[in-house]
Design a protein around this nucleic acid. Structure first.
Length: 335
DNA sequence: AAGCGTTTCAACCGCGACGTG
DNA sequence: GCACGTCGCGGTTGAAACGCT
């Protein structure tokens, strides 16, 4: 940055460093090291404070600094590490050789943060934003799933994080439609529609690698996440299946494994001491997903151990429709 | 080409952590 | 335990660079 060249109330120079100053600092540190930053500027013949010298050295002049654009791999690593460590830039920098905390911080604020916001992900929590107006619309989501137009593993991953939340909402809508189109209400014996014998489509999201939070089994959530019914198999549901398959397929050799084990092995982070926050909300965050909202409001006594009474779906739906935050969202879909 | 708005990123500031006497 | 000095971190700033009209 370029600030006023001299500090107020002191004759020590501030602002941008000149090549001559850089040279003095490098020459001094090469010979003497930097044992004492306070004393260094005087000894090196610099009219700077020690703090300024330290900053210049650690952020710019150090010989092992890697400059230039961040690679995709570095970008992924930063996101992974940030999800665990938060804004601990120096700790994140420890895992990225040649990168400084300042550089990573700037890169986060100018690039990654924006990217996450555009994907509908809160960069602070790494969870889908509650502001659904920023989410991808349904057609975009399904289009992406059907045509496989994910530009890169990174895009794929970020999009899926947002999509997971949206898929939960879609699934709720789907179940409602299925109920309306069948004789389930008249035939309570027929549990196949919402049946628990089907493999849980979103099992991985709940119990797998991306979400590390444990969560109590919840009848509503399990039913809402039931797989599409192939006998009906509307294109939209097939598209969701495809999207899910692409998620389950991973993102390439090194992948974007966000689980504790991989973070531990890749970055040396003890996640048992610092549990990884969910990248896709699985439980507690209020308003993280409408699915969770309905879940938290629902009365547990409504559920059996084997399935969800149809009334529960409708109750969830009613609550959803009543929610101002989501009314326009659902209106768009229904229209 | 000029003017204006936006983005980038080097550098500063304040504060907490740590070490020493 | 306390005071003081130094270091390191994270948030913020603002001129330069860039992009758009």
């Amino acid at each position: 940055m370029v600030r006023s060249p001299f500090s107020h109330g002191s004759d020590l120079k501030k602002g941008p460093w000149t090549p001559e100053e850089d040279e003095k600092l490098i020459d001094y540190i090469k010979i003497n090291g930097h044992e004492n930053w306070k004393a260094l500027p005087k000894l090196a013949g610099l009219n700077r404070c020690g703090k300024s010298c330290r900053l210049r050295w650690t952020n710019y002049l150090r010989p092992d600094i890697k400059r230039g654009k961040f690679s995709e791999e570095e970008e992924r690593a930063i996101v992974n590490l940030h999800s665990v460590l938060g804004n601990k830039w120096s700790r994140i920098a420890n895992h990225l050789p040649g990168r400084t905390d300042n550089e990573i911080k700037n890169f986060w604020n100018t690039h990654i943060r924006k990217k996450l916001l555009q994907m509908g992900i809160d960069p602070n929590t790494h969870k889908p934003r509650t502001d659904v107006n920023n989410f991808l619309n349904l057609s975009q989501l399904l289009g992406a799933a059907q045509f496989g137009n994910m530009a890169s593993p990174w895009d794929n991953f970020l999009k899926l994080q947002a999509d997971a939340n949206q898929l939960a909402n879609i699934q709720l809508l789907r179940n409602l439609l299925l109920i309306m189109n069948t004789n389930t209400l008249a035939n309570p014996e027929n549990n196949s529609l919402l049946g628990s014998q089907n493999p849980n489509l979103f099992e991985g999201l709940v119990n797998g690698a991306i979400i590390s939070n444990t969560r109590e089994p919840n009848p509503i959530s399990q039913d809402l996440f039931e797989p599409p019914v192939t006998t009906q198999s509307p294109n939209d549901f097939q598209a969701i299946s495809n999207l899910w398959a692409s998620y389950k397929g991973g993102f390439g050799p090194e992948g974007l494994n966000m689980d504790n084990n991989s973070l531990s092995s890749s970055y040396g982070i003890q996640t048992d001491q610092n549990p990884l926050p969910a990248l896709v909300s699985a439980s507690t965050s209020p308003g993280t997903s409408i699915f969770n909202q309905t879940e938290s409001k629902a009365n547990p006594s409504n559920y059996s151990s084997t399935g969800t009474p149809t009334s529960t779906i409708f109750e969830a739906w009613e609550k959803l429709i009543e929610d101002d935050n989501y009314s326009s969202y659902w209106n768009d879909i229904l229209e």
